[in-house]
Structure formats: C-alpha cells, structure tokens
C-alpha cells in the first residue's frame, strides 16, 4: 500500500523548514497591532494569523477597506476562519504553516531581499510580494498563492453582499435575455 505523508507533501515539506525558523525566537515577527481589532473568539486562526489573512484578502480581492465596499477584508477573514475550522485536518495544518511562512521576514528576504514581514509592507509592496508568489519559478510558491487566492476569492464572492457590485442577481437570465 502506498502512503504519502500528506496531501500536499511537497508544499508542506518545503515550507516546514522556514516555518520552524520563523516560529523560533530569533526572528522578530511583526509587532502585533492593537488586539481590539481582532475578534476575541476565533475558530481556526490565531489573532496573528487573522491579521495576516485580513491583509492578504485586502490585496488579493482589491479592496481598500472603505465603508462603501460591500464587504470589509475583516468580514472575508472572519468567513475564512469559519471555513477553515471545518476543513480537512491536512488542509488546516498546511494553512497554519503557509501563513507563518508567507509572513516570515526570512522568506521575504530569501526571495525579495527585504527584511519585512507581509504585515509590515505598504500596499504596493504587498501587491509586488503577492505577484512574486503568483509568478514564481518555484512551484510551491505558485501553489501557495493559489491556496490563498482560492480562500479569499471564494469567501468574498460566495457572500451575497458582494453580488451587487458585479450585477449578479442570482440564477435565471435577466428578462431581456431570455
């Protein structure tokens, strides 16, 4: 019988080393922002992870956090928290790892020569950083980008509050196209 160590073995193994380093105390992980902006009772994310995914959602979806937007990145992160709380254990494990690595200054240094975590980056720096993952020559970075994109996009666009801005009014053709 052929066993494989995990569903996304190569991603996990590649990320694991860096995650371990980042989790260690040598690296000053981003100073925590005020905690009162993170819900007290999260189901899956730690508070730190919640802030990362909220920032990723903002850049990934192209939101600005403005009140005119149908969903705040905070809402997307909350939905992601609920979604991942029910996910398969291997996916949960990989997302925890991924977020540590994704935000790690070690990783940003190795790949982008800057010692800044994702959370410490400006908006344009975040966009450039994400683009680097999206188009990387390394498959595991492209895979990780896809994982983050899928999570953020599906959490945003399965929420009916996002439908007005894309003129989606549910099933059935509009009357003039029937």
């Amino acid at each position: 019988m052929k066993f494989r160590p995990s569903r996304r073995k190569f991603l996990k193994q590649t990320l694991a080393g860096t995650a371990a380093l980042s989790a260690a105390q040598f690296i000053p992980i981003t100073a925590l922002a005020a905690r009162n902006d993170v819900p007290g009772s999260l189901l899956f994310f730690s508070h730190h992870e919640f802030r990362i995914i909220r920032a990723v959602a903002e850049s990934m979806i192209g939101l600005h956090g403005a009140s005119s937007e149908p969903l705040h990145p905070h809402d997307v992160a909350l939905r992601a928290d609920q979604f991942l709380a029910d996910a398969e254990p291997e996916i949960q494990e990989q997302f925890h790892l991924l977020l540590v690595v994704f935000n790690s200054p070690i990783f940003t240094f190795v790949f982008d020569f800057q010692l800044k975590s994702f959370l410490d980056m400006s908006k344009s720096e975040r966009d450039a950083y994400l683009r680097g993952w999206m188009t990387s020559i390394f498959t595991f970075r492209r895979t990780a980008f896809q994982g983050l994109k899928r999570l953020c996009m599906s959490m945003y666009y399965t929420d009916s509050r996002s439908w007005n801005e894309i003129h989606y009014s549910g099933m059935f053709l509009p009357e003039d196209r029937q």
């Binding site: 979806i61 192209g62 966009d127 999206m134 994109k149 996009m153 894309i166 003129h167 989606y168």
Partner: peptide
C-alpha cells in the same frame, strides 16, 4: 457563478476586481 469566476480569472487585486465588475 461569481466565486467560480473569481477563482478562474487571472491575477488578483484591483485588476481582477475590475474584471469581476464585467461579470454579466
């Protein structure tokens, strides 16, 4: 459908958001 479109359309961020606004 909206989420399927969002996952499939290339890129991310404002450019992607602009494409999504052409959904219909």
């Amino acid at each position: 459908y909206p989420a399927l479109a969002a996952l499939s359309l290339p890129g991310f961020g404002e450019e992607h958001h602009a494409m999504m606004k052409k959904f219909i």
